[in-house]
C-alpha cells in the first residue's frame, strides 16, 4: 500500500480528536477573550484582561507556583522510584514477567477518588496512622499528615507511578544486556555502567515518561482537592472553581490556557535539555 493510502487510517482517531478536543479548545480560546460581568456573567468582547489578571494577581501566581512545584517534585520523585523498578522488570527473565507487568497496572484499576478517600482514612487526624501512634504512646496529639503538600505529592506519585514504570521498562528492555556486560568487561563498575551506558540509552524513556507524568501532575484534580484540603490550591481545581462556582467562564478559560501554555513550555524546554545532556555522552 502506498504512503498516502495508509493516511486514511488516521481519519477516525483524527476526527474524534478534532471534534472533542479541537473544537472545545477553540471555543475556550474565544471565551477567554470575553469580558465577565457579575450581573450578566459573560459579555462578548476582545480583551486580554483575564490573562492580565491571571498573571498579575498574587493569589493566582501563588497557585501556579504551587502547581509547578508539586508537579516538578512529583515527577522527580516518580522517576527516582520508577527507574529501579523498571530496570528490574525489564531484566526479568522468569515466566512471571507478564504477571508482574499486569500487577504494575493494578493501581490504575482503583480510581483517584476512591484511592484518595482511602488515604483520608489512613492519614486523617483520626486515621489509622495517628490512632496507632497515639495508642502506642509515641505522640500526644495527632500529627498533621493530611492536607499538606507532602500528602498531595505522595498521593500523585502513587497515581502516576505505573505510567513511568511501564514507559521506562519498554525503553530499558531495548538496551541489550550484552552492552552492559561489555562495559563491565572493560572495567566499569555497576554504578559506572548505569551512569555511562544504561542512563544515556534510557534517556528517550526518561524524557517520554517524565513528560507524560509531568502533564498528568500539572493537571491533577482529585488528589489535590481531597488530600490538599480547602487551603491548598492547584491550577486544575482553580479552573474548575471559576467555571462551576464563580461562573466566571472567561477567567476560567484564561487560567486553563495559562496552565496549558506553561505545561507545554516546561515540557519542550525540559525534554530538550534532557535529550541534549545525553546525546553527546
Amino acid at each position: 500500500m502506498r504512503k498516502h493510502e495508509t493516511a486514511v487510517f488516521i481519519l477516525p482517531a483524527g476526527l474524534l480528536v478534532c471534534a472533542l478536543l479541537g473544537v472545545p479548545m477553540l471555543m475556550m480560546a474565544r471565551i477567554s477573550l470575553n469580558h465577565y460581568d457579575p450581573m450578566v456573567l459573560m459579555v462578548e468582547a476582545l480583551t486580554a484582561e483575564n490573562y492580565l489578571r491571571a498573571v498579575t494577581d498574587p493569589y493566582y501566581q501563588q497557585v501556579l507556583m504551587v502547581t509547578l512545584g508539586v508537579a516538578l517534585s512529583s515527577t522527580v520523585l516518580t522517576l527516582l522510584l520508577a527507574f529501579p523498578a523498571a530496570y528490574w522488570l525489564s531484566r526479568m527473565e522468569s515466566r512471571w514477567k507478564s504477571t508482574v507487568t499486569i500487577l504494575t497496572l493494578f493501581p490504575l484499576l482503583v480510581g483517584n477518588v476512591v484511592r484518595s478517600a482511602g488515604w483520608i482514612a489512613l492519614l486523617g487526624n483520626d486515621g489509622l496512622i495517628n490512632a496507632t501512634l497515639q495508642e502506642a504512646g509515641f505522640i500526644v496529639g495527632p500529627l498533621r499528615l493530611l492536607y499538606t503538600p507532602g500528602a498531595v505529592i505522595v498521593g500523585i506519585v502513587g497515581v502516576v507511578l505505573p505510567y513511568m514504570v511501564l514507559t521506562l521498562s519498554a525503553v530499558i528492555e531495548g538496551i541489550p544486556r550484552q552492552v552492559e556486560e561489555a562495559a563491565g568487561n572493560l572495567g566499569a563498575r555497576p554504578l559506572t555502567v548505569f551512569r555511562r551506558v544504561v542512563l544515556p540509552l534510557a534517556t528517550p524513556g526518561v524524557v517520554a515518561g517524565s513528560v507524560l507524568v509531568f502533564i498528568l501532575c500539572m493537571n491533577a484534580y482529585a488528589t489535590p482537592v481531597l488530600l490538599g484540603g480547602p487551603q491548598f490550591q492547584m491550577m486544575a481545581p482553580a479552573v474548575y472553581d471559576q467555571f462551576s462556582r464563580v461562573s466566571n467562564w472567561p477567567f476560567g478559560a484564561a487560567l486553563a490556557f495559562i496552565l496549558l501554555i506553561v505545561t507545554l513550555l516546561m515540557t519542550v524546554v525540559g525534554s530538550a535539555a534532557l535529550s541534549r545532556k545525553y546525546r553527546a555522552a
Partner: peptide, 20 residues
C-alpha cells in the same frame, strides 16, 4: 567480579555502545 578481571571480550552481537 567481571570488571576487575583482565579479559577482553568480543560479543556475538558486538555489543558496541550505540551512543558513543
Amino acid at each position: 567480579p567481571a570488571y576487575a578481571r583482565q579479559t577482553g571480550m568480543v560479543f556475538q552481537s558486538y555489543a558496541l555502545f550505540p551512543h558513543m
